[in-house]
């Protein structure tokens, strides 16, 4: 699952990291939609040649490369099956384009998730009108995932020590083996939730209609510029795609 790393926030100090999450969201959506507009190798390569420098600007090329090598198995799979089973004219060329599109799509969204801290994300949601309670629930989920994971391991160890053989037996038995892990985990989590609620109540959670925020996100000139460039290039490309014919070199494909 290492290819998912490209969707995980990494703490860096870069131009891209400093941008407002909202402008980055616009950019990511535009880039993703552009990758869905085209189904030819050349335009997708051009798109990637825009995406890669952006990821480089976010100082995350290494992580990107690692994720993509994790993805390579899936890509090989896509290429082989599409080539063999697809009914289009040039199946190999088509499946290469499909893989490029997948990479472009992932890279577009990774540009957002790599550079937006979950806190910024929930702050962005709040400033876009989402209720604080909902946005906060999301950031709390992020907060407690590792804690729950740790707890699950502790329970597994405890059950193994009592002789539960978690990784023995056929599939049915293994599925049944989950029960002694899940039941205590649920009970522990409910207790934990109560105690978290106590602590939040004690600190005035939901007390005041006009909750303040230590840090508000601010749209800077850079953000406006980014949104403008994104929207204009999107409109331009939609126009090119649907009202003009692609120049022949752009619709070039492999002959098989």
């Amino acid at each position: 699952m290492s290819f998912l790393e490209v969707f995980q926030y990494t703490r860096q100090d870069s131009v891209v990291h400093r941008l407002d999450p909202r402008s980055k969201l616009v950019m990511a959506i535009v880039l993703a939609m552009i990758s869905l507009l085209f189904m030819n190798i050349v335009p997708l390569l051009i798109l990637l040649s825009v995406l890669l420098p952006l990821i480089g600007l976010a100082r995350s090329l290494q992580r990107w490369a690692k994720s993509m090598s994790g993805l390579s198995v899936l890509i090989v799979f896509i290429v082989i099956f599409n080539t063999l089973l697809s009914t289009v004219a040039n199946p190999f060329s088509y499946s290469i384009a499909l893989s490029l599109r997948l990479i472009a799509l992932m890279s577009s969204f990774s540009l957002f998730f790599l550079t937006v801290h979950p806190d910024e994300l929930s702050q962005a949601l709040i400033q876009m009108g989402v209720k604080f309670e909902f946005a906060f629930a999301m950031s709390m989920a992020m907060r407690y995932v590792p804690t729950l994971g740790q707890e699950a391991y502790a329970i597994m160890d405890a059950q193994k020590a009592r002789g539960v053989e978690l990784d023995r037996g056929n599939i049915l038995k293994r599925i049944r083996n989950i029960v002694p892990i899940i039941v205590p985990l649920i009970i522990v989590s409910i207790r934990r939730a109560l105690s978290i609620a106590e602590s939040m109540e004690s600190r005035g959670f939901g007390a005041c209609e006009n909750r303040t925020y230590l840090e508000q996100l601010k749209f800077t000139r850079h953000d406006w510029a980014l949104v403008l460039v994104s929207v204009v290039s999107f409109c331009f490309l939609v126009y090119v795609r649907f009202y003009l014919a692609l120049p022949p070199w752009m619709s070039w494909g492999l002959p098989f």
Binding site: M142, R143, I196, S199, R203, G204, F205, A207, C208
Partner: peptide, 20 residues
Amino acid sequence: NQLVTLNVEKEIAFGPENLG
């Protein structure tokens, strides 16, 4: 169970933020 946010600054700010 008392730390509900993702970093220390936010954690300390959580209470006063709630009270406006």
